[in-house]
């Protein structure tokens, strides 16, 4: 039973809907719509070069039986995991410096500088790396001048890793710095007071306390690297065939929509599983 009249209720609902409804509607139409279509399409068939709504498992059985798909899948997964771990290691000293060695006011400036490239011309930065590392580029030239081989550094894992780092460093730096910055200083003092050496404080206080943020850093680096296809193509030079490359090839190659949909869904499944496991681990509590 309500004490309010129907008119008052209706007016309230309308006001609420004005704010709450637009985003869900837009996302239902233009995000959930495409994603659901993708799922549906993985069961469609191609007849006479025409995509036909259907309930067929042919795309699934075809794709899942491809040996090179599975090798690509695991290569993709492994490479991004390695990149995520390496980028996290690379970022850690920098994040530590930002969290503990500079003043909070400066920290914000540094974080801003670290994050800004995330929103700026990724493609051009990859191009810059390409000419940096390519034959006659800046780095090979430098190496040559000190007596090393001046060969192109492209089409190597180093090049691919630099591409991944270009993409993911900003996000990892921000997540790590926030995580380290939130470590309770009193706990650290207490540990020192109980006789802990600096390396013990790092291992037993700082790292466990910052674990959620640090793990999220690894996770985001993984997600971004895994989805990336520009570095893999133009820096890895196709030496590293990855799932997104496979995906773009399938689409450009003609009417392979259902197969592309299956590959997409496999990618999504791998992502979700990895995210779930990482988040569960990151927020796991010791004891009950």
């Amino acid at each position: 039973m309500s004490v309010l009249s129907a008119k008052v209720r209706l007016r309230r609902r309308a006001w609420f809907a004005l704010w709450a409804a637009p985003l869900p509607i837009w996302f239902a139409l233009f995000f959930m719509g495409p994603m659901l279509l993708l799922i549906a399409m993985s069961f469609w068939s191609v007849q006479n070069y025409r995509l036909t709504p259907d309930f067929s498992l042919s795309a699934w059985s075809y794709v899942l039986s491809l040996d090179f798909l599975w090798s690509t899948f695991w290569r993709s997964y492994g490479l991004s995991l390695i990149s995520a771990a390496l980028v996290s290691l690379l970022a850690f000293p920098a994040s530590y410096a930002m969290a503990f060695l500079i003043t909070p006011a400066r920290r914000l400036t540094f974080l801003g500088l670290a994050l800004a490239p995330f929103f700026t011309s990724y493609l051009v930065r990859i191009y810059s790396l390409q000419v940096f590392l390519g034959e006659g580029g800046v780095l090979p030239q430098l190496f040559h001048s000190v007596g090393l081989s001046g060969a192109s550094l492209l089409n190597s894992y180093t090049a691919l890793f630099l591409g991944h780092a270009t993409l993911t460093l900003p996000v990892v730096l921000v997540l790590q710095t926030l995580a380290l910055g939130n470590v309770d200083r009193t706990e650290m003092s207490a540990a020192v007071n109980l006789g802990a050496r600096p390396q013990h404080v790092l291992r037993h206080i700082i790292l466990p306390a910052a674990r959620p943020g640090l793990s999220l850093g690894v996770l985001f680096a993984f997600l971004l690297s895994y989805a990336e296809f520009v570095s893999a193509t133009y820096l890895g030079g196709g030496v590293f065939q990855t799932l997104p490359i496979l995906l773009t090839d399938l689409i450009r190659g003609g009417q392979q929509w259902p197969r592309a949909a299956v590959v997409s869904l496999l990618m999504m499944a791998a992502l979700m599983l990895t995210s779930l496991v990482t988040v569960a681990w990151a927020y796991r509590q010791k004891g009950n």
């Binding site: 000293p93 503990f100 810059s128 940096f132 780092a165 460093l169 900003p170 404080v201």
Partner: peptide
Amino acid sequence: HALPAWTWFAGLTLVFVILYAPI
């Protein structure tokens, strides 16, 4: 700190070089 301050700052510099060198 577990390592001398300059090592952490070296890491910071390296990261910013990687981020801004292409730009």
